[in-house]
């Protein structure tokens, strides 16, 4: 039985008074950032800039999501008409949602939390991607898949769950988007709504996926998560990560949630502790109800689960720190250089022509980047193979920056072919050293949850 945390009623009443100004300020700042992103992209006018813009845009869409969530709870102002007008035009409609439709879904989520009446369970059950224990590779693959529109089935499902509840709403959002597209068309700026929609379907959705993980998975309650400030700004803006506080006291607007948290004692967990618990949890299939993770992120997973999660995490580290930089370096080297060296003659015999993308990136970058990426990949491999404790491991690891430096210095001395370049030397060594710093400690270690080794 969940017990509502005790709070001074006067404090709760004071924290629950809606005010337009903080909401409107946040909305205006978020939109100014969005305008600045579009202006910057238009000014740079480079394919890479358009592609990368989805990350900051998706981050601001999360921010608008937090704001429309407050609007759905009538937390902008007590005047319903004004609340819904502001919430719709500045936050909900631009995200393709209507307040009425979202309320029907979201209030059922509040009422049904911890039971199969929660419509979020229908989503988790239908698109079964929230299994416990979490398997690192499929989870990483689903986040990566979001970036290539893998989230579309989820958005369709979410659209069904939050369908507009009235003709007025349907007309409102329809007119909003038709008007917007007409203006964009007349102004020859159709790329702006297109980029906006692509961003919703990729990075924005990815953020929602993450919140589905961190909010209620493995508990019938809500995880009380502590998110580092910088990360909160990027992926859980406007204190939308203070979801435990919100679920217990949904009358408190977002700009008072931090004060509410300060007034309520009790355990909190970091994202890292929660991730560790997900990886080692007792089984709980996606879309089913159960308590496998407690308020302090402790779980009951067995030794085999912990061992399997550890192996998967290791594979993920090799993939991320060795294979990905190796491939990125190769992509830039083969795709953007005018001529391929002799090493790649077999590729040319197979009909591959290098330099298809020549001119799309600054030539200096094309020169230096593969060296940096490859120096990083080699050194990361050595760090992952050896760890940094033993002397023989350290000696092997030193070969990474040593090779990067020795190669360029050898060119300077005329020992190796090719031309010496100070930038190659500096950035190559920096790439290798970065690998040591970054890979020395795993970002996520299972050791605190893992059982102690048995004495023999």
């Amino acid at each position: 039985m969940r017990v509502r945390p005790a709070i001074d009623p006067e404090l709760l009443a004071a924290l629950s008074v809606p005010r337009v100004a903080p909401w409107l300020c946040a909305a205006v700042v978020d939109w100014l950032v969005v305008v600045a992103i579009f202006a910057l992209v238009a000014w740079v006018d480079h394919p890479v800039a358009y592609a990368l813009a989805v990350f900051p845009l998706g981050s601001r869409q999360q921010a608008l999501g937090a704001l429309f969530h407050d609007a759905a709870h009538h937390l902008i102002t007590r005047r319903k008409g004004a609340n819904d007008a502001l919430g719709s035009v500045l936050a909900a409609w631009p995200l393709g949602l209507t307040l009425g439709g979202y309320r029907a879904y979201h209030f059922a989520h509040h009422r049904g939390l911890g039971t199969l009446d929660d419509p979020e369970m229908a989503h988790k059950g239908g698109l079964r991607q929230w299994h416990l224990p979490a398997a690192p590779l499929p989870v990483a693959a689903s986040f990566a898949g979001d970036l290539v529109l893998g989230g579309i089935p989820h958005l369709v499902a979410a659209g069904r769950l939050t369908k507009p509840v009235s003709w007025r709403e349907t007309l409102g959002i329809g007119a909003f988007w038709l008007g917007l597209l007409a203006i964009a068309y007349r102004a020859h700026l159709v790329w702006i709504p297109v980029l906006w929609i692509v961003s919703i379907a990729t990075v924005f959705w990815s953020g929602v996926r993450l919140r589905i993980w961190t909010e209620h998975l493995g508990t019938k309650d809500t995880h009380r998560v502590v998110v580092p400030t910088w990360l909160a700004h990027a992926i859980m803006p406007h204190d939308i990560g203070l979801h435990w506080e919100h679920h217990w006291f949904p009358s408190v607007p977002f700009w008072n949630l931090a004060k509410l948290r300060a007034a309520l004692p009790g355990p909190r967990v970091t994202l890292t502790e929660l991730a560790r618990a997900f990886l080692t949890s007792a089984p709980l299939p996606s879309g089913t109800i159960g308590e496998t993770i407690d308020a302090e992120a402790r779980t009951m997973g067995d030794e085999a689960t912990v061992a399997a999660a550890g192996r998967d995490l290791d594979r993920l580290r090799y993939a991320g720190h060795v294979a990905v930089p190796l491939a990125l370096g190769g992509f830039v080297y083969l795709g953007f250089r005018p001529k391929l060296p002799r090493l790649f003659a077999p590729l040319e015999a197979l009909g591959f022509r290098g330099g298809l993308l020549e001119g799309y990136l600054p030539p200096r970058f094309v020169d230096v980047f593969p060296d940096v990426a490859w120096a990083y990949a080699l050194t990361a491999l050595l760090v992952l193979v050896w760890g940094t404790r033993e002397l023989r491991g350290k000696l092997w690891i030193a070969v990474g920056p040593g090779l990067a430096a020795g190669w360029e210095l050898g060119q300077l001395a005329g020992i190796f072919p090719g031309s010496y370049d100070l930038a190659d030397l500096v950035f190559g060594v920096a790439g290798a050293l970065a690998a040591v710093v970054i890979c020395k400690e795993p970002a996520l270690s299972l050791s605190p949850a893992a059982p102690a080794p048995k004495a023999e």
């Binding site: 080297y333 001529k339 391929l340 060296p341 002799r342 090493l343 790649f344 593969p370 490859w374 080699l378 491999l381 050595l382 193979v385 050896w386 491991g393 092997w396 070969v399 090779l403 190669w407 060119q411 190796f416 072919p417 090719g418």
Partner: peptide
């Protein structure tokens, strides 16, 4: 007592050799 080679030495040697070859090969003129 038999001497056993730690397989990590072999992996490291192969990786370093592969990268050295990559460097030499990509520096050679087309």
């Amino acid at each position: 007592m038999t001497m056993r080679l730690d397989v990590r030495h072999l992996v490291s040697l192969l990786a370093v050799a592969a990268f050295a070859l990559l460097a030499l090969g990509s520096a050679a003129a087309p």
